[in-house]
């Protein structure tokens, strides 16, 4: 299984240090959450991993190989896929064509056959058509397969982006707020889908404001604030971390504890998470 390792990554925009010596580990078969307040540098980290911005220092390693000097399309061919926070669907094409393009681009450089979407099925000999259908069905997009993407609601357009990224068969998939725009039951289904994908070997790095979803599906979490990783560990560990609380709630844990009449830090966060699934700060 693949492994993406980000080492001491820094990204500088002029005088602004957007990401500062961030280190991350994304393992195949696991879902790693990357959370943090707005403007913390999550999307910039994504951009640096897939080569859309160039880091000022640090390395991106995929299975031990340094890919930080490669251009975006070469990193993608090594197995890095992603979706976007601001939609980047192909708006003049239909839903089916969007996914088809992802598949066709891969087929144009990956010569070998025996094609499979290894994360969705064991069938080793899918035709391109069947592969597209499989993705459409699994993401519940089949009923709108021939609709133009430009008229879709945001939640569905995000699924199209996910399907398109899957069609390129990444080993590591970066998802930038994939569940925003989905309703509660759709979010539940979406969480199940992510778990299935990971169970079949895909490594996922998930940026998401829906904390309930993050807590449910992630095996480990990293918290980014002002460009720095301030906490790292299992969801339970992160939830108990004081630095995380103060980053999110903008005040010291004591004062919060004071307002909630003796509740422990854990309780405060748990209450936050349990209340609505709206996240710490949305």
């Amino acid at each position: 299984m693949s492994e993406l390792r980000v080492e001491d990554l820094s990204v500088r925009f002029g005088g602004h240090l957007a990401v500062s010596s961030a280190s991350l580990l994304v393992k195949g078969g696991q879902i790693t959450g990357l959370i943090g307040p707005n403007g913390a540098g999550k999307t910039t980290t994504f951009n640096a991993i897939c080569g859309v911005v160039s880091p000022s220092s640090g390395k991106v390693l995929l299975d031990g190989e340094d890919i930080s000097r490669l251009r975006t399309y070469k990193r993608s061919r090594k197995g890095i896929g992603r979706t976007f926070q601001r939609l980047e669907v192909f708006s003049s094409l239909t839903v089916r064509e969007n996914i088809q393009v992802g598949l066709e681009i891969r087929r144009s450089w990956a010569k070998g056959s025996g094609d499979l979407i290894q994360y969705l099925t064991d069938d080793q000999d899918l035709s391109p058509q069947a592969e597209v259908d499989l993705i459409l069905n699994r993401l519940d997009l089949m009923p709108i397969a021939d609709h133009s993407v430009s008229a879709l609601p945001t939640g569905h357009a995000r699924l199209v982006e996910l399907g398109r990224a899957l069609a390129a068969r990444p080993s590591i998939l970066l998802l930038d707020e994939p569940a925003s725009g989905l309703d509660d039951s759709e979010t539940d289904d979406f969480g199940d889908l992510l778990v299935t994908l990971a169970a079949n070997g895909l490594g996922i790095l998930l940026v998401e404001h829906d904390v309930a979803l993050v807590m449910r599906v992630c095996t480990s979490l990293a918290v980014l604030d002002f460009g720095q990783i301030i906490a790292n560990g299992s969801p339970e560990e992160v939830r108990a971390n004081e630095a995380v609380l103060s980053a999110y709630l903008g005040s010291t844990p004591t004062s919060i504890a004071g307002t909630s009449a003796g509740a422990t830090h854990d309780d405060v966060v748990a209450a936050e998470i349990g209340s609505s699934g709206q996240g710490f700060v949305s």
Binding site: R71, F90, V101, I105, R106, W109, R164
Partner: peptide, 8 residues
């Protein structure tokens, strides 16, 4: 940018 991240 989406095309590039698909490997084009």
């Amino acid at each position: 940018v989406a095309c590039a991240t698909l490997g084009l």
